[in-house]
């Protein structure tokens, strides 16, 4: 559904994206993560048709996105910084959006979401709090009934209740209509629960791109303890791809990359006194992958 191939984008002397590859299957929720300045927003703006690539290909349904009305009409996009027409009320913006997306606009959903969020349609959008503006943006983006939803840092400012409502709707659309979602976020805890696949961008390139389960299956958090004479010996981990090691007294906390069975066999061969496989969050995967 979404395909980015060898995308390169330079701003003057700065290379924001350097041969980025990204692939999102239809009907999946893709989490795009990366440190600040990694190029997440730049990548999303290419998908939204805002930026034109210097090199590479940016396609939705195998069709180039840039300046393409047909594709843009099928894309719902919530940027990190929101813009509404100055002095417009929610109602005025609603009228505009309804006209602009006349073919796909779902008035029923708009009314329903407006009821759930409890926003005042007669109030100026500029007077809304940041969170309320985000809610309004979600209402509009979801009421467009897009085939592709691009969310750039969508959770900032949303309270947990609204977050729940929004993600329930998104998941419902994914399940029922095959909506494809790409989320860029720092809030990895939230993404952990909903993403099917994850891409970690580093320095404008795709670091790792996997299904979330596969990703977690390849990175392991293990708690081990050895006899005192072995504790300080780091050499013992030779042959194991160690992403992180932390010592807490006699206990060592390891984050290791590799197949689960192989990792377990290698560590157990070292005859630990204690061996525990701990659950790993997406946030930890992200942190340790980036530290490495």
């Amino acid at each position: 559904m979404i395909k980015i191939e060898n995308l390169t984008k330079r701003f003057d002397d700065f290379t924001a994206l350097d041969g980025l590859n990204l692939h999102v299957k239809q009907g999946s929720i893709y989490g795009m993560v990366g440190v600040n300045g990694a190029g997440k927003t730049t990548a999303i703006k290419h998908l939204a048709g805002v930026y034109k690539q210097d090199i590479g290909e940016v396609c939705i349904d195998n069709t180039p996105v840039y300046d393409n009305i047909q594709i843009k009409a099928r894309v719902g996009y919530i940027p990190d910084e929101l813009y509404f027409f100055p002095f417009y009320t929610l109602k005025m913006q609603h009228k505009f959006m309804r006209r602009m997306y006349a073919q796909t606009w779902n008035e029923e959903r708009y009314t329903k979401m407006l009821g759930l969020m409890g926003l005042d349609p007669k109030r100026r959008l500029g007077k809304f709090s940041k969170g309320m503006q985000k809610q309004a943006a979600f209402i509009f983006a979801m009421s467009v009934m897009p085939d592709v939803l691009l969310l750039d840092e969508p959770i900032d400012g949303l309270d947990p209740l609204v977050r729940k409502v929004v993600f329930e709707l998104i998941i419902e659309d994914v399940a029922q209509r095959g909506l494809t979602v790409l989320i860029s976020s720092h809030n990895l805890k939230e993404m952990d629960g909903i993403c099917d696949a994850v891409g970690i961008i580093k320095g404008g390139r795709m670091g790792i791109e996997r299904d979330l389960d596969d990703l977690k299956a390849d990175v392991h958090k293990i708690q081990v303890a050895f006899a005192p004479e072995k504790t300080q010996d780091v050499e013992k981990y030779q042959g194991i791809e160690l992403l992180h090691r932390e010592t807490r007294g006699a206990v060592e906390l390891l984050v290791v990359r590799g197949k689960h069975d192989e990792v377990e066999a290698k560590i157990k061969a070292l005859q630990p006194l204690l061996y525990d496989h701990l659950p790993l969050t997406l946030e930890e995967v992200f942190v340790y992958e980036n530290l490495h």
Partner: peptide, 9 residues
Amino acid sequence: TAFAGFPVN
């Protein structure tokens, strides 16, 4: 960004 996001070329 907002204007470019609209389905208008």
